[in-house]
Design a protein around this nucleic acid. Structure first.
Lengths: 151, 151
DNA sequence: AATATATAGTTCCATATGGAGCAAAGTTGG
DNA sequence: CCAACTTTGCTCCATATGGAACTATATATT
């Protein structure tokens, strides 16, 4: 038996395929990233946020990513130890720490993003350009609807 | 800032959306499943395999799911303790234990599958039938190509 | 101003998970 | 038949993760 047989039998064929592809597309890169860069998942999440926007604090990152605050806290602390981001006390609200990615952090971020990009290209290599365009449009429509899922 | 902004900036728009949807579609159900049924992820994996096919052993499940043997071993042991599967020594090869799902196990499995099914319906509720059909076809094409990804 | 409440970030703790290595059983090659 | 190797499933250990509680600071209420 192969996984592909279960693919045919599932009562949620699209959800199953989406989760299935995440497993085989994203997870190997995350594991390799740990080995090669010593960066773990919550650290990458923080790097991505800070690469996109300056001067966030940990709470912002919690809200953006819907991750628990202790996970973000650890990610921020370890990234600082590695010199991949800086922490500065907010002068107005001294509880807050303003976070910024460093040049090293940006470099690591970019290299990891490059791996995801290559993996995506491989994942889509069996599709025609029209199929790729349609897939993008449909996934985008669903993703933008996620905010409405709140039960 | 919202997650949706990062959605627009990523260099791997389709892979990002697939992973994003997995996070928001599958993960909440898995967490709720833990609370409501006391079933954790590797246990569900085993249940799904055994629901689909009888008389598998732990090694089969490792190969089907590409999970490490200790994870499967733990899943099998705890499911047996809960009465959701049975273990029988293989008379020919006494190292092997032949696994079968029980009626209780099938019931739990079916209830969990029902939740995934509902969540899928909600996830796809913003699509037209044509879009849903196209999405299914394209994801299926990619998923069946996964076997060729071996680097 | 004093007290109650809310928020930012951390630590503590319990648990999930994977890698490595193990014992027991089976297989292969002489 | 016996030694070397393979396979099955397990335990040990290190680490990732999330919930809850905690500290320090800020804000609201009286």
């Amino acid at each position: 038996m192969k996984l592909i047989d279960i693919l045919d039998a599932t009562p949620f064929p699209i959800g199953y395929r989406i989760a299935f592809l995440t497993n085989f597309w994203r997870e190997p890169i995350l594991r390799q990233m740990e080995k090669d860069f010593g960066i773990i998942r919550p650290e990458l999440t923080v790097l991505i946020c800070l690469s996109f926007r300056d001067n966030l604090n940990a709470r912002d990152i919690c809200e953006i990513t819907e991750q628990p605050s202790n996970t973000v806290s650890r990610g921020v602390a370890s990234l600082e130890r590695k010199g991949l981001l800086t922490r500065t006390r907010d002068a107005v609200d001294t509880r807050k720490q303003i976070l910024n990615i460093t040049a090293d952090g940006q470099k690591v971020h970019d290299e990891i993003m490059e791996r995801f990009k290559s993996a995506e290209a491989r994942m889509l290599s069996s599709l025609t350009p029209i199929e790729t365009g349609r897939l993008h449009a449909i996934l985008d429509k669903i993703a933008r609807d996620v905010a409405n899922w709140k039960d």
